[in-house]
Nucleic acid binder design. Structure first.
Lengths: 219, 219
DNA sequence: ACGATATTCAACAATTACATTGAATGTTTT
DNA sequence: AAAACATTCAATGTAATTGTTGAATATCGT
């Protein structure tokens, strides 16, 4: 671990951070924590993996300076160490999207045509919210919705989508969002809505980015 | 490698990219390639590790979409897959700098006081270049200097620094730069210059960022 | 076609990362 | 103080990564 040259010492630290990001479930944990501080139990539930496993991943990320922990009663609350963490993940996602054919294949698996894929920007959604010309759909699970959502958004988790379609106005365009730019639930929601004849698009990113951009959050 | 859910499939791809960044020597390779396309032999020379080893790292990075390769005669020329790669590395470095005590310790090892550490920005250097009130020092090896440098910069690799100090004007402030924000050579150069009584500072980043910002490059 | 050079491949041993299990720690509640 | 709960630790086996070596491949110059 320790090295002779200071240059290598630096690069080893950087590599430590990158290595901590190099695991799908740790990225999933960061996605969750991007929406707000959470305790270990809940995270294990969300990911569907053993608690001890989550604990170990979280500690690996803590060693790498990605997350911070704080004890509150019998819970240990983890949170992202700073906004830079989400930025780093985004940068990595962009590299993957730009240079890895596999990523585009998966993303495109949700759509027939490329041009249908165009998402709506935060600013545009913000403007159309003021006009009231859109229905905003938060397709995350109810507990995540409860901890903060876009003002006026209707919470409709994927599982309930079909059953509650009748409550939506078919004349208005529907904008779906979830946890982030690569949260698959919003892709899936848009696909299903279109199949039912709705005009639907995705928000370009998700809740943490919306909040980070200083947009209003309702809870 | 393949997975059931599309969500995991995506995250596995992202993790692949991050994992490819999770090795000090691969980061060093990216630093080198950030200055321009290079062939394997030269990279092995720069890092001081076996050619086969470099080849393997490069291929790992190619699989992750970080670098691209192209054959030119008997050489295989590698280059960064896009500007996003440097951005991702920078994001990771920022996380490390912000949250890992170890990084600051190493960086600070080159300086006595914190405030002396303040680097000069690209814009400020650009302005002072026009005034002609600074001496700009490129402390990279001669071959890297030859492939492009800041206009008017004097090439003075670390090894020759002391011997050629007499050619510098002690009345002018010296700005040193090298390969990037964490290239240790510029830190070392500033430290040595100050020990000799010069007024010296570092450029906040290095050559690839200078070129990426659209600043003029001389070669 | 031949030798020289640049890169990659294949195979091995050493190390490190990973998931899983059950026990241990620390905190609240009773 | 004891029970209940959330989290961490320690130990295990398995899989993946790493560096090294030498052979294999591809290209150039003659």
């Amino acid at each position: 671990m320790s090295s002779t040259s200071p240059k290598l010492a630096l690069f080893e630290q950087f590599a430590l951070v990158a290595k901590a990001l190099g695991h799908p479930q740790r990225l999933e944990l960061i996605e969750q924590l991007g929406q707000g501080p959470r305790h270990v139990d809940l995270l294990a539930d969300k990911l569907g993996i053993p608690i001890a496993n989550v604990s170990q991943h979280l500690q690996a990320m803590r060693r790498a300076g990605l997350v911070a922990a704080e004890r509150q009663g019998k819970f240990v609350i983890y949170r992202l160490a700073g906004p830079g963490v989400l930025e780093a993940v985004e940068a990595i996602q962009q590299v993957a999207e730009a240079n890895l054919a596999e990523v585009e294949k998966v993303v495109r698996g949700y759509f027939d045509q490329r041009d249908n894929l165009e998402p709506i920007s935060r600013d545009e959604l913000s403007a159309r919210l003021r006009d009231g010309t859109v229905t905003v759909l938060d397709v995350r699970p109810a507990d995540e919705y409860a901890l903060g959502h876009v003002p006026g958004a209707v919470n409709m988790p994927l599982g309930e989508l079909e059953a509650r379609l009748s409550t939506l106005d078919p004349a208005q365009e529907v904008i779906a969002y979830c946890r982030g730019p690569y949260c698959v639930m919003s892709f899936e929601a848009v696909a299903r809505l279109r199949r039912k004849g709705f005009s639907a698009r995705r928000l370009e990113d998700g809740m943490p980015e919306w909040a980070a951009a200083g947009q209003p959050v309702e809870s």
